[in-house]
Amino acid sequence: MQIDLTGRTAIVTGSTGGIGLAIAKGLAESGAQVVVNGRRAPAVEKAVRAVAASGTGQAMGFTGDLGTAEGCAALVAAYPSCDILINNLGIYEPGDFFETPDTDWTRFFEVNVMSGVRLSRAYLPGMEKTGWGRVVFISSESAFNIPVEMIHYGFSKTAQVAIARGLAKRMAGTRVTVNSVLPGPTLSEGQAEMLKPEQEKTGHSLEQLAAAFTMEHRPGSIIRRAATVEEVANMVVYLSSPQASATTGAAVRVDGGVLDTI
Rank of each mutant, 00 (worst) to 15 (best):
S180L: 04
A250H: 06
E189C: 01
T63F: 06
W105I: 01
A53E: 14
V44C: 10
D65R: 07
V148W: 09
A77N: 09
S15V: 00
I11C: 00
E70Y: 13
A159G: 01
R165N: 04
A73T: 07
I23K: 12
A233F: 01
G133Y: 11
G38T: 00
T248F: 02
P183V: 00
H217F: 13
A24R: 09
M60L: 15
G249E: 00
V181A: 02
G38D: 03
M114S: 03
T177C: 06
L89Q: 13
I262T: 05
T214Y: 09
V252E: 07
I138C: 06
V135R: 05
V44Q: 02
A74R: 12
T261W: 15
L85I: 02
P197E: 06
E45Y: 05
V176W: 03
R218Q: 14
A162D: 00
Q208Y: 14
D96Y: 03
S115Q: 14
D255A: 14
A10N: 11
F137W: 11
K46C: 06
T9W: 05
V161W: 00
S205D: 08
A24M: 03
R107C: 05
D96V: 02
P197T: 01
M215A: 06
Y92W: 07
A233T: 00
L259G: 09
D104M: 09
S15K: 09
I3W: 05
H204F: 13
A226P: 02
G20E: 13
P242Q: 14
I163D: 00
A244K: 10
A47M: 08
V113W: 07
